[in-house]
Amino acid sequence: MSGHTHDHIDWADRLALLRAADALDAVAMTAVARRLVAGLPPRPTIVDLGCGAGGMSAHFARELGSLSGGVIVLVDATPALLEEAERAANSAADLHVASDGRGSVEIRAVLGDLADTGLAHAVPSADLVWASHVVHHLADQQAAVGAVAAVAKPGGLVALAEGGLDFRCLPWDLGIGRPGLENRMLAAQAEWFIGMREGIDGAVPMPYGWSTALDRAGLTEVDSFGALVHHPSPGPESLADYVVNRLGRLREFAGGHLTADDLATVDTLLDRTGPHFVGARQDLYLLGAKTIHCGRRP
C-alpha cells in the first residue's frame, strides 16, 4: 500500500527522519506525556491519531506502565509507520510490567485515516486523544479537529501538537555562501507549506488559530503550553545525521523557492566527500519549540 496521503507526501519514505526526530525530542516530549497522563483516570485509554513512528506513544506507554497501566491505540494511514509505531510502543510497554501484571499496557494498532468519517467508530472512546502535526495535512482542518474531538469520551482530554517555533540547527555564517542560509530555507519551507495546503484536494482555509479551532469544535477548558527542544552544540551523536537528513529534505521539497546560489550552498553542505560537509561540523545544535493545544470534551 502506498505511503502517500492527502498532502501527496510519501511518509513511509521519511521513516528514518521521523525516528531521528523522535529521539531528539524525547526529553521534551516525555515531560509532555507525563503532564497529559497525570490527570487521567486509572487504566485510561489513549488514542494516538497519526502516530507516525510511535515516539509519543512510547512515552505514553512508559508513563502508563509506571502507574496503573492502560490501553494505547495507534492510528495511522501509512502501514510502514503503523508497524514501526507498534514496535516502539510495545517495546516501551514491556519495560514496566510488574510480575503481578500491574502497569500492563495494551497496545492496539488501527490502520485508519483521520479524514474517514467512520474513524470514531473504528477506535474506542478515549480518555486522551493525541494528534501531533497531522491535522494541518488534512483538507478541512476545522472538520479534522472536530473528528479528533469525537474520539474523546465525555470529559476526555484532546491534545493537538501544532505550530510552535521552527527548529534551527545551523550557525548564521557557515563559511560558504551568504550568511543567514537557514533563515532563507525556513522562509522557503513556509512557501512550500502554502503550496502544499493549496495542492490538497478540497482544501478549506482556517483563518484563525488552533485554540479557536478547539473552541469551535465544542471543547471546553481550552488552553495551550509549550515544550522546548534544545540540544546545544555539539549535541548528541545522532544530531549530525539528523541535520544532514533535515537539510536534504528541505532541499527536496522547498528547494524550488531558493536562489541558485543558495541551492549551490546547500548542495555543497550535503556533499559527504567535500571539505564543507555539514555532518562533519562540531557547531551544530537543535533549538525549537512545540505547542500543545488542549481542550476537554463536555
Rank of each mutant, 00 (worst) to 15 (best):
His4Tyr: 15
His8Arg: 15
Ile9Ser: 05
Ile9Trp: 04
Asp10Ser: 02
Asp10Asn: 14
Asp10Ala: 06
Trp11Val: 13
Leu15Asp: 10
Ala21Ser: 14
Ala23Tyr: 00
Ala23Thr: 09
Ala23Cys: 00
Asp25Glu: 15
Asp25Asn: 12
Asp25His: 13
Asp25Val: 03
Ala28Asp: 05
Met29Arg: 09
Met29Trp: 11
Met29Val: 12
Ala31Val: 13
Arg35Asp: 09
Leu36Glu: 09
Val37Ala: 12
Ala38Cys: 11
Val47Arg: 09
Asp48Ser: 11
Ser57Ala: 15
Ser57Tyr: 03
Ala58Thr: 04
Arg62Ala: 15
Arg62Lys: 03
Glu63His: 04
Glu63Trp: 01
Leu64Met: 09
Leu64Lys: 11
Gly69Arg: 00
Gly69Phe: 01
Asp76Lys: 07
Asp76Phe: 03
Ala77Trp: 01
Thr78Arg: 00
Pro79Ser: 05
Leu81Thr: 10
Glu84Met: 03
Ala85Gly: 02
Arg87Asp: 11
Ser91Ile: 07
Ala93Ser: 07
Ala93Gln: 04
Leu95Arg: 08
Leu95Thr: 15
Val97Gln: 02
Val97Lys: 04
Arg102Cys: 01
Arg102Asn: 07
Arg102Tyr: 00
Gly103Lys: 04
Gly103Ser: 04
Ser104Met: 02
Ser104Phe: 00
Ser104Ala: 04
Glu106Ile: 00
Glu106Thr: 13
Glu106Tyr: 00
Arg108Tyr: 10
Leu111Trp: 12
Gly112Lys: 12
Leu114Ala: 05
Thr117Met: 04
Val123Ala: 08
Asp127Ile: 12
Leu128Arg: 07
Val129Ala: 11
Val129Cys: 08
Val129Asn: 08
Val134Ser: 05
Val135Leu: 07
His136Cys: 14
His136Ala: 13
Leu138Cys: 14
Gln142His: 02
Gln142Lys: 02
Ala143Ile: 01
Ala143Thr: 14
Ala143Asp: 10
Ala143His: 09
Ala147Lys: 14
Ala147Asp: 10
Val148Gly: 07
Ala149Lys: 12
Ala150Asn: 14
Pro154Phe: 04
Leu157Asn: 05
Phe167Cys: 00
Leu170Lys: 05
Pro171Arg: 06
Pro171Cys: 06
Pro171Glu: 05
Asp173Met: 07
Asp173Phe: 06
Asp173Cys: 06
Gly177Cys: 12
Pro179Cys: 00
Arg184His: 10
Met185Ser: 08
Ala187Thr: 13
Glu191Ile: 01
Ile194Asn: 09
Gly199Gln: 01
Asp201Trp: 01
Pro207Trp: 03
Trp210Asn: 10
Asp215Tyr: 06
Arg216Leu: 15
Ala217Val: 14
Leu219Lys: 14
Ser224Trp: 06
Ser224Cys: 12
Ala227His: 12
His230Phe: 14
His231Asp: 11
Ser233Arg: 08
Pro234Gln: 05
Glu237Arg: 10
Leu239Gly: 14
Tyr242Val: 02
Val243Arg: 06
Asn245Lys: 13
Leu247Pro: 09
Arg251Gln: 09
Leu263His: 08
Ala264Lys: 13
Thr265Val: 15
Val266His: 08
Leu269Gln: 12
Gly274Thr: 10
Gly279Met: 09
Ala280Ile: 01
Ala280Gly: 13
Arg281Pro: 01
Arg281Gln: 06
Tyr285Ile: 02
Leu286Pro: 00
Leu286Trp: 00
Leu287Trp: 08
Lys290Met: 08
His293Met: 10
Gly295Tyr: 07
Pro298Ser: 14
